[in-house]
Each structure stands twice: as structure tokens, then as C-alpha cells.
């Protein structure tokens, strides 16, 4: 059970890889981190600070800040608003995003 890309009618260009929590993830130029993760079936983006609850993409338009992740060491990056890049290092954000 997982999310997926609609391929009909779209040429996405050349795929590349980035990592999420150490695992390789496929993405296309211009694709958001959130979209690539959804297509790979990874939906949890962070764990909240106060109650340690899992959260994921919710509003999809940069309003809710639920999909924040640690990207190349920088905490609180909105996965829905940020294009993936080759070799990018993405991590699930625990709490405020202290380094693991």
C-alpha cells in the first residue's frame, strides 16, 4: 500500500536519488520532497515535540508546517514547498530537530 505517480501524459525527465533516513529515494527535477516521499510510500515526516506524535503532509500548501523535516542538516524545512535535489540528505524531524 503506497502512494504513486501518475505517469500518463507526463515526461518527468531524468530521475535522480536522494536519501531519507539513510534510504535511497527516487525523485525528478522540480519534484517536491513531499511528493517524492509519498510516491515512495514514506508518509511520516516528523514526530512532535510535546506528545511524540507522528505527523505527515497535511495541507500541501505551506500553511500547516506539519511536513517539516531536516534537510541537509537544516531543521524545519517544509517538504511540500521544497524541491528535492540529487544527493540531498533528508531526515525525519524529531521534536525541534536536534541532530540525531
Amino acid at each position: 500500500m503506497t502512494g504513486f505517480r501518475i505517469t500518463d501524459g507526463i515526461d518527468r525527465g531524468t530521475a535522480f536519488q536522494f536519501t531519507c533516513d539513510g534510504e535511497s529515494v527516487t525523485a525528478y527535477p522540480g519534484e517536491s520532497i513531499a511528493a517524492a516521499l509519498m510516491a515512495a510510500g514514506k508518509r511520516q515526516t516528523r514526530v512532535t515535540a510535546r506528545r511524540q506524535m507522528p505527523r505527515g503532509l497535511y495541507c500541501g500548501m505551506g500553511v500547516c508546517w506539519e511536513c517539516i523535516m531536516i534537510v541537509n542538516g537544516k531543521p524545519a524545512v517544509r517538504a511540500c514547498m521544497t524541491p528535492a535535489e540529487p544527493g540531498m540528505k533528508v531526515e525525519t524531524q524529531h521534536g525541534v530537530g536536534d541532530p540525531a
Partner: peptide, 25 residues
Amino acid sequence: TLPGVVTAGGLQNLLKGQRVIPGRR
């Protein structure tokens, strides 16, 4: 708040802006 629950606006954005559907069932 569970991952896998998304807004209608968010779903449409993923479709239009990414052509990605964030789940199957």
C-alpha cells in the same frame, strides 16, 4: 493528525503540481 490524512486542497495541489497521489486505498 495521522500521516495519511490530508486536506482536499492539499490533495489537489499534489495532483496539479506534482501528479502524485499520496496513498492507494
